[in-house]
């Protein structure tokens, strides 16, 4: 099982904004059952895109400023970012669909 880096307001700049790779952010919360169900899928994607994508997760309860910055109104939400700016929202929830979406979006 891969580890997905947990990002918070303190390390957001280092982990996301300064990343050379595009960053896929999984907005989640511990009480959210669909988020828990999605996590193994996200963990499975991480090694597949290790060379082209960084994947992190943000707990919206612990990081209200990031929740507001990305205007998160429901979870789970998957945002693809570059230099900390949102470039696409991934709406799929199966690995098959997510991989197809990422293949279209990533250089």
């Amino acid at each position: 099982m891969s580890d997905i880096t947990a990002v918070d307001e303190a390390n957001f700049d280092n982990e996301v904004v300064a990343s050379d790779l595009p960053v896929l952010i999984d907005f989640w919360a511990p009480w959210c059952a669909p988020c828990r169900a999605l996590l193994p899928t996200i963990e499975a994607l991480a090694p597949m895109y290790a060379d082209s994508l960084k994947i992190v997760k943000i707990d919206i309860d612990e990081n209200p400023a990031l929740k507001e910055k990305f205007n998160i109104q429901s979870i789970p939400q998957l945002y693809l970012t570059k230099a900390g700016e949102h470039i696409a929202r991934l709406t799929s929830r199966t690995r098959t669909q997510l991989a197809a979406e990422l293949d279209d979006l990533l250089p």
Binding site: M1, P40, E43, A44, R95
Partner: peptide, 8 residues
């Protein structure tokens, strides 16, 4: 690859 995800 899919076994870990299978319960979910």
């Amino acid at each position: 690859s899919i076994a870990v995800e299978f319960p979910a």
